[in-house]
Design a protein around this nucleic acid. Structure first.
Lengths: 201, 201
DNA sequence: GGCCGACCAGGACGAATGTCACGGCCGGGC
DNA sequence: GCCCGGCCGTGACATTCGTCCTGGTCGGCC
């Protein structure tokens, strides 16, 4: 019997997936969580064979939790299940030791099969997605550039960002300019969108 | 037997919901579509008793389709199922003649019950959401202001927007300024976010 | 040691943005 | 008829944004 942990914030999606997996003869959902912070503690307690994690969760990111889980509970195979097949997400998932990367498009029928293949040691990845991740290359932005870009996403002014990150306005402007250049965009808004699309934030 | 049409772009969500509803004794999913453009034609062909529609779909909006469906197939009860409980969405759904408005949070167990209550003539709405929609008031933005704001969402410059909408740059700036004022924000990015949050775009 | 990249900051400059006042046209309501 | 609001445009103005150049510190690598 394969014991499954489910991390997904949308209640309806989580419930539907749990019901779906419980219908499988050889699977059993032993824990469900709705936030990223609960993943590791719950997993350590429940000891699942497989963790099916969303990335964009309230609290901690699913990718973060995946990395820690892989280290502290190596017996548990981590599978990422996300809405967006962003190249950077896939890359980070692989670096975090994930056994597979699934997108929420694609038929439900594949889900159980993907879990079984991952348990068998196979790396379950959509080939088209893998190609996109490789062609996109690694994240060219430095940590600071990512932080500044994230802080700019909500329409904050330079002064706002500077205050929030304890920097000078001039420094913030320079980081933004660098990020705009590296993303080949025209302004901070386009830069944020490009970075998001690639999974760099 | 209640015949259900399902409109949802995420394959996994769509499949899981279909499976879930088919498990109910008195329900039967007779059609599934993944884009907004397919809703009305498919519904006219399949003749469902209930249409469960997502709002943010590729192609046409689910709210648009709901309005036309309510007019051309009055025998079909329209239920909106959306990720975001934006006040403006709820308002537009009610104006489109929807029989209910559900958010994808909240437990799956309620779904079938909500459908049955809507079929019985009840208006199924989360009370907290209804209160939020009323307190937020109607959309203060004019049609043009909405269009300009939507066009500005992707980081386009004033010149870009002007070209796209066949307007003068000065006019675009005036509309943006008006939208910024009405949303009590400081710049176009914040205005776009505020308008989106309220479901005005 | 030299080299490089990330990090931080300042100044100067042109371009874009946001605000305001001012016009005009049209259609609907009183 | 008059008034009002939506629509479209212009010009002027201060502010912000984005670019470029300059400078500095620090740690890692060869």
């Amino acid at each position: 019997m394969t014991r499954v942990l489910l991390a997904e914030d949308q209640g309806m999606m989580r419930g539907a997936l749990a019901l779906l997996l419980d219908l499988e003869e050889d699977m059993e959902v032993v824990a469900q969580v709705a936030s990223g912070d609960e993943i590791v503690p719950t997993a350590l307690e429940a000891g699942p064979d497989v963790a099916l994690l969303d990335i964009e969760l309230p609290g901690r990111s699913g990718l973060d939790a995946a990395a820690e889980l892989h280290e502290r509970l190596p017996s548990c195979t981590v599978l990422i299940l996300t809405t967006f097949g962003r190249p950077g997400y896939l890359r980070r998932a692989m670096e975090a030791g994930a056994g597979g990367f699934l997108v929420k498009d694609g038929p439900v029928e594949e889900l159980a099969g993907a879990i079984r293949r991952a348990l068998a040691g196979e790396r379950v990845i959509d080939p088209a997605l893998a190609a996109a991740a490789l062609s996109a290359g690694p994240n060219p932005l430095t940590r600071r550039e990512c932080e500044v870009l994230s802080a700019a996403a909500d329409g904050s002014t330079v002064a706002d960002i500077a205050a929030r990150l304890h920097l000078s306005g001039a420094t913030v402007r320079n980081y933004l300019s660098a990020a705009i250049g590296k993303t080949s965009t025209r302004n901070r808004v386009e830069a944020v969108r490009a970075a998001r699309r690639n999974g760099w934030l």
